[in-house]
Amino acid sequence: MDRTIKGRSRGDHGGDVYSHPRADVLDLSANVNPEDIPSALWDALPELLREARRYPDLEYQALRQQIARYLQREEGLQVRLNQILPGNGAVSLLDAALSLERQVLMMRPAFSEYEASCRRHGIPCHFLDRPPKSSVVLGDAEATALKDKLREGPDISALILCHPNNPDGKRWDRQSFSDLLAFCQARGVRILLDATFSEYLPQEQRLTDYGRQHPFLVEIRALTKFFGLPGLRLGYALSSDEGYLEKLSGRMTPWAVGTFAAGLGSLLLQEEAFIEKSRRDNETRRLLWTKALVQSGAFERVYPSCANFLMVYSKEFEALCANLSHEGILLRSLKNLPALGEGYGRICVKKEEDLSRLLRALASVSPKNSTESP
């Protein structure tokens, strides 16, 4: 039986462990925190299930209060509850946000759902395609190119960016982003900032504080991948423009977040030790994985990243993916991304034992390449 949903392909995203024949599959195609779920969450499950017998609070007061406390603790930000809008995952919130726009500019390579959402809502897209970059920082060159594109498209109402960027893990230089934000605000262009992986950045590299002074910045965050629960589907939008969030809420269905997800999300945000350990361990592991993948000789390029994943290049990447799949290991092909194409891939950074398994498989299935780490 064909299980493919019309309009969707398994190749559009990572994380398709369901169609794989092996039970011991190692999924490196989806960017999910490998840390174990905190024990306090397991202990809370009976109460959360009892709460799920009731409809969610339409205002999500408890969840928004915990998000506000989290932002105060983690980033020193004072955020009013009306500046927080919970939703059914970052993708759902971004889709609703894009549906409000006239025309959209995006810089690629980028998450494929941005363009898919625009197509779904009939919104014209403009693109700035940049080549794979050896530096981990996006700066004045990218900001200037985006400004030029905005000047060419007077009907563009929104610019969508990702920080750190998916699929290559690049982050914005704060001053360059600040200049771009001021330019956009002067032209009435809203920046939709996908900050799904921002928890992996140190506080001084995040951009959330700019939204306190700039109502044209809307930040979308996820509460699932960093906390290792992507199946939960929970995220939130942040904006100092409360009127905009009211409009955004109007594009979403009632009870967009279930009682169970809202309750579990509130608990996740209180797990300070888990949050700090995840950030610290990822920093160490990312350096380890980068060095090991370079030394493996399986890839011609391993690109530096600020997130929990690495973009790689090999002329034989598609064959390598197929061979590794036979070994029960899934990588993410990026051949469906227009600015990259065949040969590029993405690998999630996980635990040391996962790296050992990957390296053993690479040694058995891949030809040796001359590898560079830009």
Rank of each mutant, 00 (worst) to 15 (best):
322 A>F: 01
55 Y>S: 08
105 L>G: 01
318 E>A: 10
28 L>H: 12
151 R>T: 11
329 I>P: 00
362 L>F: 12
103 Q>L: 06
105 L>N: 05
263 G>P: 12
129 D>E: 14
270 Q>Y: 04
94 L>E: 09
286 R>M: 11
11 G>M: 00
175 Q>R: 07
270 Q>D: 04
370 S>D: 11
351 K>G: 12
313 Y>M: 08
115 E>V: 13
30 A>T: 08
185 Q>I: 05
314 S>A: 14
231 G>R: 00
146 L>C: 13
154 P>T: 12
135 S>M: 13
255 W>K: 15
149 K>V: 14
259 T>L: 08
243 G>E: 04
334 L>P: 07
289 W>N: 01
298 A>N: 08
345 G>M: 10
143 A>T: 12
36 D>F: 07
337 L>T: 12
162 C>N: 09
193 L>S: 05
127 F>I: 01
174 R>C: 15
224 T>N: 10
138 L>W: 03
365 V>C: 13
108 R>T: 15
100 L>W: 01
265 G>Q: 09
171 R>P: 02
328 G>L: 02
121 H>D: 00
153 G>E: 06
60 Y>F: 14
81 L>T: 11
277 K>I: 10
193 L>V: 02
29 S>M: 03
273 A>E: 15
329 I>S: 01
367 P>D: 05
299 F>A: 00
36 D>I: 14
346 R>W: 00
125 C>E: 03
311 M>S: 11
243 G>W: 02
271 E>V: 15
168 D>E: 13
373 S>E: 07
111 F>H: 12
44 A>K: 03
163 H>L: 07
144 T>A: 15
243 G>Y: 03
76 G>E: 03
